[in-house]
C-alpha cells in the first residue's frame, strides 16, 4: 500500500511540460493529482495567513489577548468531559451489546436508556423530584419509541 503515502515528486512527473498549459494525467496515478493541488494551496494559504496576520497575532499574544488554553475561562470541565466519556462509552457499548442480540436493535435500545438517563442527570441544574421523574420517564420512553417506530415499523437497521 505504498500509494496511501503521497510524495510531491509524483505531482511534478505528471506534468511533463510541452506547453505551459498542457498536462498529461496518468490514470494509474490520477488519484494523487487533485490532493496534491489542494495540499499545495493549503500550504500557500497557511504561509499567506502567517505573513499577513502573524505580526498582529504576535502582538496580541504579547498583550495577553490570546491564550493557548483550549478551554474558555470558567469552563465546566466536569460536564464537558462527562459528555465526552459518556458518548465514548455509549458508542462502544452499543456495538458490543448489539453483537449479543444480532440484528434486533437491542444494542441501541439497551444502551440508549442508561445513556439518556446519565446524560440528563449530568446536565440538569437544581435537581428536584419533579425533574427526576421527567428525566427517568424520558430516558425510558424516548429510546423505546424510537426503537419501536423506526426499528420495528420502518425496519431501519439499528446497532
Amino acid at each position: 500500500m505504498q500509494c496511501s503515502v503521497f510524495t510531491m515528486s509524483q505531482l511534478v512527473s505528471s506534468q511533463s511540460m510541452s506547453s505551459w498549459l498542457d498536462v498529461k494525467i496518468d490514470f494509474d496515478q490520477s488519484h494523487l493529482f487533485f490532493p496534491h493541488i489542494i495540499i499545495g494551496l493549503l500550504i500557500m494559504m497557511a504561509v499567506l495567513i502567517m505573513a499577513l496576520e502573524g505580526r498582529r497575532f504576535m502582538s496580541r499574544l504579547k498583550l495577553g489577548d490570546v491564550s493557548f488554553s483550549l478551554f474558555q475561562p470558567g469552563a465546566d470541565k466536569m460536564r464537558f468531559f462527562g459528555t465526552l466519556i459518556l458518548i465514548v462509552v455509549y458508542f462502544w457499548s452499543m456495538d458490543a451489546v448489539g453483537q449479543l442480540f444480532p440484528n434486533m436493535g437491542m444494542g441501541f435500545l439497551l444502551t440508549s436508556i442508561p445513556f439518556i438517563l446519565m446524560m440528563s442527570l449530568l446536565y440538569v441544574h437544581k435537581f428536584n423530584r419533579r425533574k427526576l421523574l421527567s428525566i427517568v420517564l424520558n430516558a425510558v420512553i424516548a429510546p423505546l419509541v424510537v426503537w419501536y417506530v423506526l426499528g420495528q415499523w420502518f425496519a431501519i437497521t439499528l446497532p
Binding site: 442480540f101 444480532p102 440484528n103 434486533m104 437491542m106 437497521t157
Partner: peptide, 17 residues
C-alpha cells in the same frame, strides 16, 4: 428478546441481515 430468537432449532431464524 432471546425467547424470540431461539424459538425452534432451525439454524436460520430470527432477524437475518
Amino acid at each position: 428478546a432471546p425467547a424470540y430468537s431461539f424459538a425452534d432449532d432451525s439454524p436460520i431464524q430470527g432477524n437475518i441481515r
